[in-house]
Nucleic acid binder design. Sequence first.
DNA 1: CGATAGACTGCAAACGATTGCAAAAAGCTA
DNA 2: TAGCTTTTTGCAATCGTTTGCAGTCTATCG
Lengths: 365, 365
Amino acid sequence: MSVTLKDVAQAARVSVSTASRALTGTGLTSERTQQRLTRIARELGYRPNPIARGLKTGQSRLVALLVHNLTNASFQVMAEVVQARLKALGYQMLLCIGGDDPEQESDTLTTLVDHRIDGLIVVPTGKNGPQLKALANDVPIVCLVRRDDATDLETVLADDPQGAYLGTRHLIELGHRRIGLIVGRQDTTSGRERLSGYVRALREADIAKDDTLIHAGHFEPETGATGARKLLDLPHPPSAIFVANHEATLGVLRVTAERNIAIPDDLSLLCYEDMPWFEWHRPAISIVDNGARDLANLAVDRLLHRMDKGNGKDGVREYRVGARLIKRDSCRQIDAPTSGKSAKPKSPPSKSSAARSSAAKSAKV
Amino acid sequence: MSVTLKDVAQAARVSVSTASRALTGTGLTSERTQQRLTRIARELGYRPNPIARGLKTGQSRLVALLVHNLTNASFQVMAEVVQARLKALGYQMLLCIGGDDPEQESDTLTTLVDHRIDGLIVVPTGKNGPQLKALANDVPIVCLVRRDDATDLETVLADDPQGAYLGTRHLIELGHRRIGLIVGRQDTTSGRERLSGYVRALREADIAKDDTLIHAGHFEPETGATGARKLLDLPHPPSAIFVANHEATLGVLRVTAERNIAIPDDLSLLCYEDMPWFEWHRPAISIVDNGARDLANLAVDRLLHRMDKGNGKDGVREYRVGARLIKRDSCRQIDAPTSGKSAKPKSPPSKSSAARSSAAKSAKV
DNA sequence: CGATAGACTGCAAACGATTGCAAAAAGCTA
DNA sequence: TAGCTTTTTGCAATCGTTTGCAGTCTATCG
């Protein structure tokens, strides 16, 4: 069907080996034949067959990215970054969706390695440590966003302890003392670390940790709904909720909408990881940004390094990418009942606050 | 490194060919050897090398999906559907992001075909017709969402004329006479067809088409912003805007927010294609749903058919998937100034309306 | 019992590239 | 021009499968 190296060689009246050497630019052919062959190849429209080449060389020029889903904006960004970087280097990205499901992850992993991918960036479920570890002997692997504790794979993580700390501190500085936390599964790195950041900020401010204010659950909108209901039904509900579980955000919003809770007047809301529309939402939603773009870039850097310099076990195994707070309009200053903290007023004067309340009422419809 | 067929054959003391036949289940081996070999293969952890197999058979068990981006919720859904369907059949999905950029599309296409993909579902930019057409000889291709007019490829389209018609009619039924339209590039099928649906609804209602109310532009948020400004700055601005260009939605929202325009009180807003958060937005945004899931499923059906039954030029070249209207809260009934149309009041009483206006003001901050 | 069909199996040639090794060609020195 | 080195080239094996063809074995039938 398509033009093969043999065709090119025949047309040029040289052997296939010479053709190969000329076209791959090994420098083992004379300048003249090289140029002649490149010309002929171009004229014939020759395109090397990566499959055949791969069989011989053991490389596929395929790099896989395995994420949980594509609804999460961070994963979207990462996919786009990884794709762009790899493409520039002549690799094709294989984007796989694992659904945070260990079985699917395991399946996909074997398929990928079967296909002799040259490298893999994976957001691990954390349940396939042994498999990942074994695979890492065959192919360079970099973990992203989550660590798989059963492995010692090179891992690029968001600075979740810091991010959660920053977010919590922000709320504290606004005068909140009862801060609800909705967070991810505690058997994941990110879940645990965000909780720890939250706790640290509380401790620093001498606020007692109240376990009834903490809701940990799966990475699903439903978790947010359940959590929000639980928190809001408390005898003494929180004045702010920190949704440190990205997927849960929609669930929380649903509940506040259902109950006509005005944000930020009745409740301050701080979320984790951006979504493109947070900025346009009214009120615009404040977030802790996990730096998805940086994470992806660093992961690619590390992977390329491994693919290039060998897949050995070198020194650094863990990289952290800084988180930062993006203040928008979903958190408000509250009148600190007793505390003597210096509180620069940040939210607009009462007029606006009143307007906001009525907005909340109108939303009842 | 890994276990090859040869190893299995040796362990079983048969020839490689027998091993191959036994394991691929050709039925050309005795029941006994077949079972024995499967057992041994399993024990040894043999996994066939798709590269080697591909070289011989010309198949890769790779199917590519080429979309513009991953921010568009429709593409997300499609990617997930396609991935799930293909995986169940033992194919790996290659997800590629083309950015609606002809050059990138062209690049990606050649790479994909080089990699001997078994099938391709593509949302074409429309600028690489000849190439697509040529490629279609080598590999089954199905176009999705957009048609490439320079080809006669099998294409699965949303019913955009109908969708735009439904949306526009909805607004008309609510009493709107001046309806702004923000729509995509007119050199794309979807762009043209949505415009035509809009026009048809207008004509049916005996409303004169006013070109100043129509803004066509690129598939980008910026288009929405520009369009919204243009429309709102009109001496006699529209009472409703139909954003029939999904990507433009955020831009429109930005402008309405900037200008404190209350939706739906000051302006009714109807959008095209869902986003997961439209439902949670206040007001929840009414949309015309393009049926992304159905589109993807149908595209997979058609592709599998081609891969299975041969890649010939059969009868039907174009499939349409119905659109439907999803009413939420961003469009309101307006007092028809003169028209005698029967108008069941749908929007809440004035009290709420007033509240909503003040909500708009509060958003100024 | 010998012939013959039918079921299995193995040999060897692909698939399209890469690559070690040795031969041929070219360049250089004397 | 012979002799030697240094390119440059070609042969052939190889990567791990699949598959046409021919050969072996068993069983069945006359």
